[in-house]
């Protein structure tokens, strides 16, 4: 018995190595994708405050582009103002306020950490549970879709970026055809380009068509831009197009984002849950 202990003691470093390696591998497997991010929330405070200092410095370098984006968005909104329009019809009509009910609310937030050079990129945002943020909410910036929230702590949240080979999903619509089709993917290479897949090659698509979010997407309002079709290839052996989409967002320069809060989400989920109870899967 004694000799066993002696032997084990002489091999202590190997045991320690194996133990620590197994620990880290478990943490890779369990946590690495994204449920993870706030597991060690206390140890994160220091790191997040450093990241915040970092983003506050680099924010200044992007002020010009940020201004430009806000300016464009402002003009877009101004075009939609009711005061731009004159009533031409002489008929009397009534406006019933209750026709419209608010569905989406938006929260502004700052991006603290951001990366584009990995194959699974995430974004940390300085809003959390205390602002009413929940998992699954959409994140977009003035230029277009950025990602969806996957993890929330009290004051911060993590979003999976569109630049993610695994986690991000959005339902795309082709604006010119007004048709919901295909899936948007990122192949893990160029952060400026996305792929649009599963679109039949007999669809009348053209270069320059806009890809936006569809009304069927659960976490985004309709018509948030995703990108513009840059090239179309159809091969004789395949039934689907090879479509390259130029992303409308410059992911290296995201600083201010909006988080979408869908006020009808609970109601929709409740309905779907009832159907799922009857084994009718709604997706």
């Amino acid at each position: 018995m004694n000799s066993i202990f002696k032997y084990l003691k002489s091999k202590l470093h190997v045991l320690l190595f194996l133990l620590l390696e197994i620990l880290s591998i478990i943490s890779i497997i369990r946590f690495n994708t994204y449920q993870t991010a706030f597991y060690y929330s206390n140890t994160r405070k220091l790191s997040l405050s450093l990241h915040e200092a970092n983003s506050s410095i680099f924010d200044y370098f992007g002020l010009y582009t940020k201004n430009q984006a806000l300016y464009n968005e402002n003009i877009d909104l101004r075009r939609k103002l009711r005061s731009n329009y004159v009533v031409e019809s002489k008929k009397i009509f009534e406006i019933n306020d209750t026709v419209y009910k608010q569905r989406y609310k938006y929260f502004p937030a700052q991006v603290i950490t951001n990366s584009t050079n990995r194959q699974n990129n995430f974004i940390t945002i300085n809003r959390g549970k205390s602002s009413g943020i929940e998992k699954g909410m959409g994140v977009f910036c003035p230029e277009g879709v950025v990602g969806t929230i996957v993890e929330v702590s009290d004051n911060y949240s993590i979003a999976v970026s569109v630049l993610n080979t695994e986690g991000f999903k959005v339902v795309p619509k082709i604006k010119e055809l007004n048709d919901t089709k295909g899936t948007v993917n990122w192949n893990g290479k160029d952060p400026n380009y996305l792929n649009l897949e599963n679109i039949n090659k007999y669809e009348p698509l053209k270069v320059g068509y806009h890809i936006v979010t569809s009304p069927y997407s659960k976490n985004f309002p309709e018509n948030v831009p995703i990108g513009v079709i840059e090239s179309l290839k159809s091969r004789t052996t395949e039934t689907f197009y090879d479509i390259k989409v130029k992303s409308s967002v410059n992911f290296g320069k995201i600083q201010t984002v909006y988080i979408v809060i869908d006020l009808f989400k609970d109601e929709i989920e409740k309905l779907e849950a009832e159907l799922n109870k009857k084994n009718l899967n709604v997706k």
Binding site: F17, S24, I25, N32
Partner: peptide, 26 residues
């Protein structure tokens, strides 16, 4: 081994890469 693991782990905490640096550093 222990110090390398801890360094990697702390690096993981800073850069949200759960366990990758810890495994490689160990």
């Amino acid at each position: 081994i222990l110090v390398s693991f801890l360094a990697g782990f702390l690096f993981d905490v800073f850069f949200q890469s759960w366990g990758i640096h810890a495994a490689a550093c160990t």
